[in-house]
Simulated assay, not measured.
Amino acid sequence: MRIVMADDSTLLREGLERLLVEAGHQVVAAVDDGPSFVTAVLQHRPDVALVDVRMPPSHSDEGMRAAVQVRESWPAAPILVLSQYVELSYADELLATGNGGIGYLLKDRVSDIDEFLDAVQRIAAGGTVLDPQVVAQVMTVGRRNDPVQALTPREREVLTLMAEGRSNAAIAAAMVVTEGAVAKHIQRIFGKLGLEQDDSDNRRVLAVLAYLRG
Rank of each mutant, 00 (worst) to 15 (best):
residue 149 Q to G: 12
residue 149 Q to P: 06
residue 149 Q to A: 14
residue 150 A to D: 11
residue 150 A to C: 02
residue 151 L to Q: 13
residue 152 T to W: 00
residue 152 T to A: 05
residue 152 T to I: 02
residue 153 P to A: 02
residue 154 R to A: 15
residue 154 R to F: 08
residue 154 R to I: 09
residue 154 R to E: 12
residue 155 E to S: 10
residue 155 E to Q: 15
residue 155 E to T: 11
residue 156 R to S: 10
residue 156 R to N: 08
residue 156 R to Q: 15
residue 157 E to D: 12
residue 157 E to V: 00
residue 157 E to T: 10
residue 158 V to K: 01
residue 158 V to P: 06
residue 159 L to Q: 07
residue 159 L to E: 08
residue 159 L to I: 10
residue 160 T to A: 09
residue 160 T to H: 07
residue 160 T to C: 08
residue 161 L to Y: 12
residue 161 L to G: 08
residue 162 M to H: 03
residue 162 M to Y: 02
residue 163 A to R: 10
residue 163 A to L: 09
residue 163 A to E: 13
residue 163 A to K: 12
residue 164 E to G: 10
residue 164 E to K: 09
residue 165 G to T: 14
residue 165 G to S: 12
residue 165 G to A: 11
residue 165 G to E: 12
residue 166 R to E: 06
residue 166 R to H: 13
residue 167 S to H: 03
residue 167 S to N: 05
residue 167 S to F: 01
residue 167 S to V: 07
residue 167 S to T: 15
residue 167 S to Q: 04
residue 168 N to A: 13
residue 169 A to D: 14
residue 169 A to C: 06
residue 169 A to W: 08
residue 169 A to N: 07
residue 170 A to D: 13
residue 170 A to Y: 04
residue 170 A to S: 14
residue 171 I to V: 13
residue 172 A to E: 04
residue 172 A to C: 07
residue 173 A to F: 05
residue 173 A to I: 04
residue 173 A to L: 06
residue 173 A to W: 00
residue 174 A to T: 11
residue 174 A to P: 01
residue 174 A to G: 03
residue 175 M to Y: 03
residue 175 M to N: 07
residue 175 M to G: 06
residue 176 V to I: 04
residue 176 V to R: 10
residue 176 V to D: 10
residue 176 V to T: 09
residue 177 V to P: 02
residue 177 V to F: 01
residue 177 V to W: 00
residue 178 T to A: 05
residue 178 T to V: 02
residue 178 T to W: 00
residue 178 T to P: 00
residue 179 E to W: 00
residue 179 E to D: 13
residue 179 E to G: 11
residue 179 E to S: 07
residue 180 G to D: 06
residue 181 A to L: 01
residue 181 A to V: 06
residue 181 A to Q: 04
residue 181 A to P: 00
residue 182 V to H: 11
residue 182 V to T: 15
residue 182 V to L: 10
residue 183 A to M: 09
residue 183 A to T: 15
residue 184 K to I: 12
residue 184 K to C: 00
residue 184 K to F: 04
residue 185 H to E: 15
residue 185 H to A: 14
residue 185 H to M: 12
residue 185 H to W: 08
residue 186 I to M: 09
residue 186 I to D: 02
residue 187 Q to A: 15
residue 187 Q to L: 11
residue 187 Q to Y: 08
residue 188 R to K: 12
residue 188 R to I: 11
residue 188 R to V: 14
residue 189 I to Q: 12
residue 189 I to K: 12
residue 189 I to T: 14
